[in-house]
């Protein structure tokens, strides 16, 4: 039978991040977002910390999820992906390049969340229409550049992936 973890008890939490096994240490109340940042995955940005802005979006078993709305201990046994996994070696990955090409960012704070949101959404719905992409992008907030460039980047990335999946 599973035992209780005390409120202040820091426990080892085995996480798989971008294919790599990591052991975080966290008390029960630590969010997955905070635990990932403490493990060095500082692409996980925290805007609102209550599930509204989407800046902390990561993939859990391939699905886009808000990591501020998960406890670190809930991440055990799941495959987690962050923006670091999108890079092509030292170069930008195709989705990141599409953001650059379409001026889909200004300050960049929300960008990692948008990248993981779009990556996850297009894995689920590779043939999504423009309208479906617009709705998916509305999950996250961007306070400086707006959604037009982001939607265009997603469309460009979708056609790139169609050509060379």
């Amino acid at each position: 039978m599973a035992g209780w973890l005390a409120p202040d008890e820091s426990v080892a939490v085995n996480l798989t991040v971008n294919g790599e096994a990591r052991q975080a240490h966290a008390p029960p109340r630590r969010t997955l977002a905070d635990a990932l940042r403490e493990e060095g995955f500082t692409s996980v940005h925290l805007g609102c910390e209550h599930g509204v802005c989407g800046a902390c979006t990561v993939l859990i078993d391939g699905a886009p999820v808000r990591s501020c709305l998960m406890l670190a201990v809930q991440g055990r046994g799941h495959a987690i992906e962050t923006v670091e996994s999108l890079c092509d070696g030292d170069d930008l990955g195709a989705l990141q390049q599409a953001f650059d090409d379409n001026d889909a960012l200004q300050c960049g704070f929300c960008t990692p969340g948008f990248l993981m949101l779009i990556e996850g959404f297009l894995r689920l719905e590779p043939e999504a229409s423009r309208q479906q992409i617009v709705e998916a992008v509305s999950s996250n907030l961007c306070r400086c550049t707006g959604a037009v460039g982001i939607v265009q980047a997603a469309l460009d990335f979708q056609s790139t992936r169609r050509r060379s999946p």
């Binding site: 039978m1 599973a2 035992g3 209780w4 973890l5 005390a6 409120p7 202040d8 008390p27 029960p28 109340r29 969010t31 905070d34 609102c48 910390e49 209550h50 501020c68 406890l71 201990v73």
Partner: peptide
Amino acid sequence: MKPAPFAYAAAES
């Protein structure tokens, strides 16, 4: 915006 402390258990059944 951090949760207050709580005890935690993950049930398997």
